[in-house]
């Protein structure tokens, strides 16, 4: 474990000794991870390492077998997912989950209607907020189309837009760049940087190394349900443990593939 000093202020979001078991399978085996306010953390690891499970635990869609999750100083381990969202933690799904029979605008408006500020604003204000988000992620031209009519890149972008519409302080992104062209990846990276500049803490799960290394301030490596290393992108690429467990195996096989 790297000797990174714990942040002085309460972290934006933190997991402590999180264990998740599915029957006999151990998906997470004592994960402790904290992310500072305003940080961009890259989370990498081979398929099946437990990355999505960790995001699910942090967003409340998966109860941990043991361990705890904190947002700021608040223990949210037993808090239902919808309330965690209202506390300011949003997530995207790797397998995108659009509301297929609603328009793109309505998809995003649902987030604005029910997110962190949802209850404080009128439906009209929520739709206006949704339009702002659509503008930011570049989906404004598609606003009136059905979500089911979007391309893959469009659906990935819609996942981000829905999450952003909930006005998160922490955003958990699960492979939002999978299957995108290099140009689209650049666009998404730009978007995420601007979201972060606005003060949102990001955890980015990604297989696209170029994106992870380019955007993250810190990278954590998950392998077989454990954090095996964390540190700056440069340190991680040089870490022999990481190369052995993850990069080595991947690069030996050839091109990275989602």
């Amino acid at each position: 474990m790297s000797a990174l000093a714990a942040p002085a202020v309460a972290p934006a979001i933190a997991a402590r000794d999180v264990v998740v078991r599915f029957g006999g399978l151990v998906a997470l085996d004592g994960v402790t991870l904290s992310v500072a306010l305003g940080e961009i953390l890259g989370l990498i690891g081979p398929n099946g390492a437990g990355k999505t499970t960790l995001l699910s635990v942090m967003s409340g869609t998966q109860r941990p077998t043991s361990g705890a999750v904190f947002v700021g100083e608040r223990d949210i381990t037993r808090v239902p997912a919808y309330r965690i969202t209202r506390l300011g933690v949003a997530r995207t799904f790797q397998v995108v989950k659009p509301f297929a029979n609603l328009s793109v605008r309505e998809n995003v408006a649902v987030g604005a209607l029910y997110g962190r500020h949802g209850m404080d604003r009128s439906a009209r204000a929520a739709f206006a907020a949704a339009d702002d988000v659509l503008e930011r992620v570049g989906l404004a031209p598609e606003a009136k189309r059905l979500a089911s009519e979007l391309t893959l890149a469009g659906r990935n972008r819609l996942e981000i837009a829905k999450a952003l519409a909930t006005d998160p302080q922490v955003l958990l992104l699960d492979e939002v760049m999978a299957g995108l062209t290099p140009h689209e990846i650049d666009q998404t990276m730009g978007l995420l940087r601007s979201v972060n500049r606005a003060g949102v803490t990001l955890i980015v799960v990604e297989h696209v190394m170029r994106a992870i290394m380019g955007i993250s301030q810190r990278v954590a490596v998950l392998h077989q349900g454990r954090i095996i290393a964390q540190g700056s992108p440069q340190a991680i690429v040089a870490d022999p443990l990481v190369i052995g467990a993850y990069l080595g195996a991947r690069y030996a096989k050839g091109a990275p593939h989602a």
């Binding site: 967003s59 409340g60 869609t61 239902p80 997912a81 919808y82 309330r83 969202t85 209202r86 949003a90 997530r91 799904f93 989950k97 659009p98 509301f99 297929a100 029979n101 609603l102 309505e106 408006a109 649902v110 987030g111 209607l113 029910y114 997110g115 962190r116 949802g118 439906a123 929520a126 829905k162 999450a163 519409a165 909930t166």
Partner: peptide
Amino acid sequence: SRFGYALVAIRENEEAAAVLGIN
């Protein structure tokens, strides 16, 4: 209404509805 959008979101995908803040 707001409530109506919650219902439709639940129909379309309940987990996605929950992470957008819908009880």
